[in-house]
Each structure stands twice: as C-alpha cells, then as structure tokens.
Amino acid sequence: MAFTTEQEAIMDSIVARYPRKRSAIMPLLHFVQSIYGYVTKDGIEKIAEKIEVEAAEVTAVSTFYTQYKSEPVGEYHVGVCINTLCAVMGGDAIYDSVSDHLGIGNHETTKDGKVSLEKIECNAACDYAPVVMVNWEFFDNQTPQSVRNLVDAARAGNPPAPTRGPKTLRTWKQNSEVLAGLSDGLSGEGVSAGPATLLGLKIAKEGGSK
C-alpha cells in the first residue's frame, strides 16, 4: 500500500476543506511530497482517485509548478535567489560559490542526499538581499561564506536556524507538510519581523511619523 489509512484520512480531510474536490489537488501534491519527498506515480494515482479526475489531469498540474518535484531533492533544499536584485547584490556569486563548493549544479543533489541546490526566483524578501531559502525558510542577508557554512552544517546534521522562522530548520518533507496546510505547531517560534521590515516603523517612532 503506497499510503496508510491514516495518510488517506488526512487526504480526505484536505479534500473536505474545499467546496469542490478538484481544488484540493495542490495541497494533496504537497502532502505526497511530505511523505515521499517528491511527486510519485502512486501519489498521482491516489490524488486522481481522491478528486475524481484522470491521472493525466494531475500530472498537468504537478508539472506546472516549480515546487513540485519529479525527482527526490535533498533533505535540505537550498534555493539561491538569482533574480536581478538579489543577483546584483550577491546572489550570483553565492550560487557559483556554493555550487562549486558542493560540486552540484541547478536541480542537483549531493550524493549523500543531504543538500540540493536550485536557482530560485524572487522570494519577497528583497530588503534582506541576498536571500537564500532552505526548505522555503528565510535565510536573509547571505554571503558566499555564510552559505558555504550553512550547507556544511546541514550536511553534518546541524543546520543553522532560519533568520525569520522556527528555532530549528525543518526538513524538506516536514516543511512540505506545512505547505499541505497541516500545522506543526511552530508558528509561535521566530521573530515577528526582521530589522528591515521594522525600519520604517523605527524611523517613524523616532520622529518621522504622523
């Protein structure tokens, strides 16, 4: 059995969130990734069964979005933003450095399965550039050195905490469960806002406000 009864029950509860079953396809795909790390054939077929569509209609959706992977990624999936602003601010240099350091390229994983690398697009943290996301947690204001340190620590099983996220960096599969809309109880951890986010407020309080 590709999915346990418990997992199927969770899938049913995801489907029940929506007025129409088909809407559940996206969280269901994240959920499959939380179990297998990527979108498996079993996952596609199970989702097709749950939302009552053809398997082809599921692959049409799963292949459209960047976050759904057709092959396993590392336990720690490192996304380096290389959109213009981050690239100019250092993202390109960071990517080249960490790619060289790990010996892997875009969409590739280290042999020990620990770390994979991806060039990502703007992640809505431009005031913290250069930005790196690991398993979609924020690592703000990075440099080539800090990212090399990050991946080394991750490979050793002891990655640093996100800048604005939970106290401990969670794995790809664990965070995929969050993206399926399932709570892991960690929302209370981490800052409410980083320094750049608070900059305007701080200045306003110091005399620039109405």
Partner: peptide, 19 residues
C-alpha cells in the same frame, strides 16, 4: 482528458500519464 498540457512556458507540451 487523457492528454493534457504539461510543464510551463516554452517547455509546455502535450502529454499523457505514462501508464
């Protein structure tokens, strides 16, 4: 709907579910 459009952008292509 056994054939669908897969992928995105310039790599968009008609495809089937392999099985």
């Amino acid at each position: 709907p056994f054939i669908t459009l897969n992928e995105r952008g310039a790599l968009q292509q008609v495809g089937i579910y392999e099985d």
